[in-house]
């Protein structure tokens, strides 16, 4: 499961928005094929941490390594982003394009894949997320759960080394959460490296290889889900878990 070199390594990351310090020295290592679930209260910095990984937010200081190579916005940012697929809370599908075009655009324009191969892969991915029949629909014609599954397919189409999920089910109606988690579970079982920020504790417990609890810009505690959930060592973790479980 975990190889010698971490897939992602974060060293001492700091980030502030104005006067608000959101990340206060976060270090994290994610192994190849590992599924790391980041939990914590709102405002704890977990989404910011994820968004710093592909520089949607620019960290103030600290280092990020992808497969041993340091992420440097001046040199390799676009290459790094291609290797980190991201799924957003609000889906962010391109509403003016059909589902198929949503998925094939980046492979064609960024990777230089020809149209035919891009579409073939897109249809395979749509089948994988259970939406083979929606290739020619517009995002506006889909339910929230379907949109998020398309968004996952779109990220996968770049064949990234890591998948980042930023609260992927938080904007969904309860009855649609399951279908999205199911797809994510499938990816995890296939051996994808995943970092998932979520409030879905059931998913964390069942699918996560490791749970990371963040609060107030720090990683407070991390470990196998079984341990963190049943036997949290830190008082703050206990307090958080007692509120939500």
């Amino acid at each position: 499961m975990v190889s010698r070199q971490p897939m992602i390594e974060v060293r001492n990351l700091y980030k502030r928005f104005g006067n608000l310090e959101v990340l206060k020295g976060v270090s994290l290592s994610v192994g190849r094929g590992e599924v790391v679930v980041v939990i914590g209260p709102s405002g704890s910095g977990k989404s910011t941490l994820l968004r710093c990984l592909n520089y949607l937010e620019t960290p103030d200081s600290g280092q990020i390594f992808l497969d041993g190579v340091e992420v440097d916005p001046k040199r390799n940012l676009r290459q790094v982003r291609q290797e980190m697929g991201m799924v957003f809370q609000s889906f962010n599908l391109f509403p003016h394009m059909k589902v198929l075009d949503n998925i094939t655009l980046a492979p064609q324009k960024v990777r230089g894949t020809d149209k035919e191969s891009a579409e073939k892969l897109a249809l395979e991915l749509l089948a994988k997320v259970g939406l083979a029949d929606k290739a020619h629909s517009y995002p506006g014609e889909l339910s929230g759960g379907q949109r998020q599954r398309v968004a996952i397919a779109r990220a996968l189409a770049m064949q990234p080394q890591v998948m980042l999920f930023d609260e992927p089910t938080s904007a969904l109606d309860p009855e649609m959460i399951g279908e999205v988690l199911e797809v994510m579970k499938k990816l995890a079982l296939e051996g994808s490296t995943m970092i998932v920020v979520t409030h879905e504790m059931g998913f964390a417990r069942e699918v996560g290889d490791r749970v990371v609890f963040m609060d107030d810009g720090h990683i407070i505690e991390e470990g196998p889900p079984r341990e963190v959930f049943s036997n949290p060592k830190q008082a703050r973790t206990r307090e958080f878990l007692s509120k939500i479980l």
Binding site: Q82, H96, A106
Partner: peptide, 29 residues
């Protein structure tokens, strides 16, 4: 929405590609 730009950039697209394929077509509508 800012999320449109973020999604495009996260896929590795350049700012120019994002403007051309994602932002302008929606803006003109």
């Amino acid at each position: 929405d800012k999320g449109q730009t973020e999604a495009a950039l996260s896929l590795g697209m350049t700012s120019a590609q994002t403007m051309r394929y994602i932002i302008l077509p929606q803006a003109f509508r």
